[in-house]
Amino acid sequence: MKKCQISSILVMILLVSLILSGSIFAADYEMKIGHSQSVKTPRHKACVYFKLIVERETDGRVEVKIYPSNQLGTEAEMLESVKMGAIQATLGGQFEAASPKLLIYTMPFLFEDISAVHDIIRGPIGDKIASAAEANDIKILATGVAGGLRNFSNNERAIETPADMQGLKMRTPPIDSIIKTIEAIGGNPVSVPYAELYMALKTGVADGQENPFTNMVDKKLYEVQKYLTIVNYQFHPSPLYTSLDWYNSLDSELQVTLEKCADKMMIYNDELNREGTEDSLAVLQKEMEVNYLTDEQRQMFIDASQSVYDYYIEQGFFSQAEIDEIREAASN
């Protein structure tokens, strides 16, 4: 066989391969997803999984491009870009900016465990909460778990009741529901950037802090904290925010496909977070003095934090009926 014939056959094989893989033609739609975490985190791994299944399930019509580690700006800037349609999606926090209704998830002691969280965020109540973001030009495709339930650590003493929080300087992120909760249960909130948390605890700028186990291990906080109290006081959602205008530009088949892929993505994300939570707790149990609250002790914290609910209900963020609906559904 002549060389030119062999070359032609090879070219044809290559073309067929490219056509079958969908890579020879440009996608109909580009979906840029930005987030703030590193490529090692469950959040990024979930995005990679989303890219894989979206491009497969849409036969390459939607191309997903992922930008981790704040490449597209801060979380606030990325959410604003989604609202404006400059990028198509972002994954993460900024609850109040997306929809004040999302703050209902962050109310103290609303959930007993992550299974109760899943019952809500994957069901009709979660869909209703997510739909409120459409008033801000945002479509939430699905909601997952951001790191697991949050707990306390400090250097001064074991925390067993709200009285033990008195006088403790507790580092908090700039999230109003956390600040109000720490104040309600007797602590003194101290604002420290997350990047400076380790040194703040080491130097005594703060006595303690609150975070999921995964964050505590990632930041090696066990090196500068002695006591860990497992109180599971708060949950943070991880919504996949998309531009409502962009979503509406898709045909109905693609919309349904994206939502199904987003649901699968969040199940994968939550499983990664579950594994990370278990592994991280094992590390902390070896490195710190771990205190598990009794039901009676935890109830003291629940009672003390009721004022946080009162504030948000009075401000109109949500109603007592909505809180009761979540509690009833999560307990069934």
Score class of each variant (00 low, 15 high):
Gly60Cys: 11
Arg61Gln: 14
Arg61Ile: 08
Val62Arg: 01
Glu63Ile: 11
Val64Tyr: 04
Val64Pro: 09
Lys65Ser: 12
Lys65Tyr: 05
Tyr67Gly: 04
Pro68Val: 13
Asn70Thr: 07
Ala76Lys: 01
Glu77Met: 04
Glu77Asp: 06
Leu79Phe: 07
Ala89His: 10
Gly93Cys: 06
Gln94Leu: 00
Gln94Asp: 10
Ala98Ile: 05
Ala98Trp: 02
Ser99Cys: 08
Ile104Pro: 10
Tyr105Thr: 08
Thr106Leu: 02
Phe109His: 13
Leu110Ile: 03
Phe111Ile: 03
Ile114Glu: 10
Ala116Gln: 15
Val117Ser: 00
His118Ser: 14
Ile120Pro: 06
Ile121Arg: 15
Gly123Leu: 09
Gly126Phe: 02
Asp127Glu: 15
Ile129Arg: 02
Ile129Gly: 01
Ile129Pro: 04
Ala130Ser: 12
Ser131Trp: 09
Ala133Val: 03
Glu134Leu: 09
Ile138Leu: 15
Ala142Thr: 08
Thr143Ala: 14
Thr143Ile: 15
Gly144Glu: 03
Ala146Gly: 05
Gly147Cys: 11
Gly147His: 12
Leu149Asn: 04
Phe152Thr: 11
Phe152Ser: 11
Phe152Lys: 13
Ser153Asp: 05
Ser153Lys: 05
Asn154Glu: 03
Asn155Phe: 07
Asn155Met: 07
Asn155Leu: 00
Asn155Ile: 07
Arg157Ile: 00
Arg157Phe: 01
Ile159Trp: 07
Glu160Ala: 12
Glu160Arg: 15
Thr161Ser: 01
Thr161Gln: 10
Ala163Glu: 03
Asp164Lys: 06
Gln166Arg: 00
Leu168Thr: 00
Met170Cys: 04
Met170Trp: 05
Met170Lys: 04
Arg171Met: 14
Thr172Ile: 06
Pro173Ser: 13
Pro174Ser: 08
Ser177Asn: 05
Glu183Val: 04
Glu183Tyr: 03
Glu183Trp: 08
Asn188Tyr: 03
Ser191Ala: 04
